[in-house]
C-alpha cells in the first residue's frame, strides 16, 4: 500500500482489492426482463435510476424513477425491468427519517 490518506487512500485500497470505488455509479448490463431484471446496486433502500431504453434504435429519452428495495420497476416506455440490490447499510438515503417510515 503506497503512502496516502483520506479519500485518496480509500480509492487506492479499493484498487488493490481489485474493485472500483464508484462501481455502483454506472450500472450497465443486458436489457432487464421480468425473468432476469436489470440489477441496480444501492447503498440505501432506494435510489434514483434512469432508464435509457435498449441499444441503438431502441434507445429512448431517459425516464427517471425511484427504485425501491423489494419492489421491481417496469419502464413505462420500453418495459425494461429493474430491481434494487442493497450493498450498503440500507435505510433511507437522506440520512434522517423518511416520510415512508411513518406508516
Amino acid at each position: 500500500m503506497p503512502i496516502a490518506t483520506g479519500h485518496e487512500k480509500e480509492e487506492l485500497e479499493a484498487e488493490l482489492e481489485g474493485r472500483r470505488l464508484l462501481d455502483i455509479d454506472f450500472p450497465e448490463g443486458p436489457f432487464g426482463t421480468k425473468e432476469a431484471p436489470a440489477i441496480v446496486k444501492s447503498y440505501y433502500d432506494k435510489r434514483i435510476v434512469g432508464c435509457p431504453g435498449g441499444e441503438g434504435e431502441d434507445e429512448h429519452d431517459v425516464v427517471w424513477f425511484w427504485l425501491e428495495k423489494g419492489k421491481s420497476f417496469e419502464c413505462p416506455v420500453c418495459t425494461q425491468y429493474f430491481e434494487l440490490e442493497v450493498v450498503g447499510p440500507g435505510g433511507p438515503p437522506d440520512g434522517h427519517g423518511d416520510e415512508d417510515d411513518h406508516h
Binding site: E11, L21, Y43, P89
Partner: peptide, 9 residues
C-alpha cells in the same frame, strides 16, 4: 464498506 464520501471529487 462505505467510504468517507460517495463521489471522487
Amino acid at each position: 464498506m462505505i467510504e468517507s464520501q460517495r463521489h471522487s471529487y
